[in-house]
């Protein structure tokens, strides 16, 4: 295993992106909107394509704008279908993001002559290539850092409002907190984070990092602040361990299983998602064991009562 400066940047970028995602992810989770992350990461595709088509460049700004609009569009339209058409929430979300994703695939193909955008790249990202940059700090690294800082500031600023809006949106509304606008804001932030992250790690890692750290943290803590902190820790760990295993034990393990000799290093983004999943399932199993043990002890202490 060879460790180079690139590996350091991959880990740093991955960790920053993962933590940037974990922050809005916790609130999505509390709002029971986990699949919105998935939906947005699919739905931004036409936004990106249109951004490219209009501006003709791969500049960040039109891309961000197009994606943010697509994200808001997803939230608003699926909400409308749910309310006006009385279609179940999950299904209306599914209808919207599938249609948008299909539209995006077609637009990209249509725009193929003008811009170089590969849907595969949007999905899986390529952390390994993105960090190759002439600057001393790769653009992608400071972008992820910036979005992390932005998300942390916003979460800190609106912490109690977001908490209340997630717990009891009606009460929040009645007491003058614009739960609806907070919701839209969360959608926009999720879309922005998705776009910044997709270039480096691809939309799949975005979905994983939005939800898996938060879900793991939910098993570990019962306060929202605690969940937020734990989720940052889990995101950091999955990024570090993910890249390490992608270049070391991952390929070895896979070679042994499949009988292919000398496989090269695996996709870091993919392995980061896998590691987040492994951390989740480990803690899930431990928590479940602990709970069982606890309830057995309790049962013993209760039953003798007549």
């Amino acid at each position: 295993m060879m460790w180079s400066e690139l590996d350091t940047w991959i880990v740093i970028t991955g960790a920053l992106t993962a933590m940037a995602c974990a922050v809005p992810g916790v609130f999505l989770l509390l709002n029971k909107q986990s699949m919105l992350g998935d939906a947005i990461s699919h739905a931004v595709l036409p936004g990106l394509a249109i951004g490219f088509l209009v501006s003709g460049t791969r500049d960040t700004f039109p891309m961000l704008l197009g994606a943010a609009l697509a994200g808001v569009f997803t939230g608003v339209v699926s909400g409308m279908i749910e309310r006006r058409g009385r279609v179940e929430a999950g299904a209306s979300l599914g209808v919207v993001f599938c249609s948008l994703f299909a539209l995006g695939l077609i637009l990209i193909r249509l725009a193929a002559d003008h811009v170089d955008l590969d849907p595969g790249c949007v999905l899986y990202g390529s952390l390994e290539l993105a960090v190759i940059d002439s600057a001393s700090v790769p653009r992608i690294a400071w972008q992820s850092g910036a979005i992390l800082v932005l998300n942390l500031i916003l979460a800190g600023f609106f912490f109690k409002e977001l908490q209340l809006a997630a717990f009891d949106p009606r009460f929040a509304k009645a007491s003058g907190i614009p739960a609806g606008w907070l919701q839209q804001g969360l959608t926009v932030i999720t879309a922005l984070t998705t776009v910044v992250a997709f270039e480096s790690v691809g939309s799949i890692l975005v979905i994983a990092m939005l939800i898996v750290p938060g879900a793991t943290a939910m098993l570990l803590s019962r306060s929202v602040a605690g969940v937020l902190l734990w989720s940052l820790a889990v995101a950091l760990c999955s990024a570090v361990i993910g890249h390490l295993s992608a270049i070391s034990i991952g390929p070895v393990f896979l070679s042994l299983l499949t009988g292919h000799g000398n496989l090269g290093s695996l996709s870091s983004a993919g392995m980061m998602a896998v590691c987040a999943g492994l951390i989740f399932f480990t803690i899930f199993a431990l928590a479940h064991l602990a709970q069982r043990l606890f309830s057995r002890v309790k049962e013993h202490s209760v039953t003798p009562q007549a």
Partner: peptide, 13 residues
């Protein structure tokens, strides 16, 4: 009959 939701007892004997 004893019934518990998660850790909370709901019915006792």
């Amino acid at each position: 009959l004893n019934v518990a939701y998660h850790r909370k007892m709901v019915l006792w004997d």
